[in-house]
Write a protein that binds this DNA or RNA. Structure first.
Length: 439
DNA sequence: CTGGGGATGGGGCCC
DNA sequence: GGGGCCCCATCCCCA
């Protein structure tokens, strides 16, 4: 067989007996051959697993026994790699693993993925599958789950046109080569892998770019994520505020907000981008849908999102809750819920004065007091301390700040709109509450 | 270009 | 579990 062309990794070979001067009858692409071989091998292994042929590993999940091949588990999971390497002679004769941190149903999904490359995700299992994958150190599964959740929440900046998001109540499947986990694990740490080429088998309208670009969520930690300069929005030079609606409780892609900062508040006037009544209705509908999806996401959180085996001074284990989106762990579930907002983009606290939204009530309060109430008793110009006698509140749109009498006179009284200090704490009113509901 | 300061976001932890 | 406070990191604007 002669090699007649070299196309990078895949080479074309001519069938035996064919001369290079003859018109080629059949061409063999080694890439195709490799894929076919891999598929066949995987099918055979899966068949053997189901027949319990040559299974040398037992996994007990909440009392349910799973049989598998240790070499397959070794190649697919960092956890099993570690476990299977702990024997006195490298590999122990019999391998048994017991799990109580996820359900047998979840492990079935994981195991089916290992042996088939098919990941059956639904809104009901995605969090637990992700948590289990995190526990088992299967980064590709984690990434598929992240993409599933992201697409379901529809918070991708790059795919603004993908409003036709996948309903969380529906089930879809991702496919992938099962052998990629091993190489990923060698080069990258947990939650820091590049997204594998997931094939979205349901929604053809969704471009792969949202999955393939640099993903701030994959950076490993929440803090890093929040400030990653290579977030999709920044990569494309896209202004988050141009794409998203400030009325939207999920309007900010995690990681982009902090780059927008106060500039976003200045650039955008309330409701400037939407004017028609029809669009307003769409906004309301989208808000409702996304809020419901966020609620559904929270509702599907398993009782134990993750347990990290820390020990205190008395050698007692300390329970911690692990974020399914990153490596961050917290002591309290309530703190995890708060932390999750930086991943979901949920911003339930809108400022009634400027429509800017916040993840926490305290942040809204701080913003309102600083920006709209001029609570700081400091002259904005000369930074000196001012009292009600020595200064005034200056209005600048919805913004308010204080200036001392001397600076006001210096600038010119007529140029500055002022109001009495007595009224400065009343207008505009801070209407605290979720999504604009007055309290 | 750079440093300072304001605004904002997130984590830890107490009440 | 929620609210709130404190602290720190980061971004952005401006002098």
């Amino acid at each position: 067989m002669d090699m007649v062309a070299d196309l990078g990794a895949s080479r074309l070979y001519r069938a035996p007996g064919e001369s290079s001067h003859q018109q080629p009858q059949r061409w063999f692409n080694t890439a195709d051959i490799t894929v076919a071989h891999q598929n066949n091998l995987l099918k055979q292994l899966n068949h053997q697993r189901r027949q319990e042929l040559f299974c040398d590993c037992s996994v007990l999940v909440e009392g349910q026994l799973f049989r598998a091949h240790r070499n397959v588990l070794f190649a697919s999971s960092g956890y099993f790699r570690m476990l299977l390497s702990q024997g006195p002679d490298g590999l122990p004769d019999s391998v048994n693993a017991t799990f109580d941190v996820f359900s047998p149903e979840t492990f079935t999904v994981i195991l089916d993925f290992i042996y088939s490359g098919q990941l059956d995700l639904s809104s009901h299992n995605v969090i637990e599958v992700m948590s289990a994958a995190s526990y088992l150190q299967m980064n590709n599964v984690i990434n598929y789950c992240k993409n599933f959740i992201k697409s379901s929440l529809d918070i991708s900046l790059k795919d603004e046109d993908s409003e036709r998001c996948l309903s969380l109540s529906e089930t879809c499947s991702f496919t992938s080569g099962a052998g990629e986990e091993s190489s990923e694990q060698q080069h990258q740490g947990p939650c820091s892998v590049s997204p594998p080429p997931a094939l979205w088998t349901r929604d053809n309208s969704r471009s792969q770019s949202s999955f393939m670009g640099k993903d701030p969520d994959l950076d490993g930690s929440a803090s890093t994520l929040a400030t990653n300069p290579s977030s999709p929005a920044n990569e494309l030079g896209v202004e988050a505020d141009d794409l998203q609606d400030p009325q939207d409780p999920l309007y900010t892609l995690p990681g982009s907000e902090r780059r927008r900062g106060k500039g976003a508040t200045k650039r955008r006037t309330p409701n400037s981008s939407r004017s028609s009544q029809h669009e307003d209705l769409d906004i309301q509908e989208a808000r409702t849908q996304k809020a419901e999806k966020a609620e559904e996401l929270y509702a599907t959180l398993p009782p134990i999102v993750g347990v990290i085996g820390h020990f205190n001074k008395d050698s007692n284990p300390i329970m911690r809750f692990k974020c399914p989106f990153c490596t961050h762990t917290v002591k309290r579930k309530a703190d995890l819920k708060r932390h999750l907002r930086c991943h979901t983009g949920e911003r339930p606290y809108p400022c009634q004065a400027c429509n800017k939204r916040f993840t926490r009530l305290e942040h809204l309060r701080s913003h309102f007091e600083t920006i709209h109430q001029a609570r700081k008793l400091v002259c904005r110009k000369c930074k000196c301390q001012v009292t009600e006698e020595t200064g005034h509140v200056v209005c600048e749109g919805t913004r308010r700040y204080r200036m001392c009498t001397a600076c006001i006179q210096e600038v010119g009284c007529d140029d500055i709109p002022m109001e009495s200090l007595e009224g400065s704490n009343e207008e505009p009113a801070l209407l605290l509450g979720v999504d604009g509901e007055e309290e």
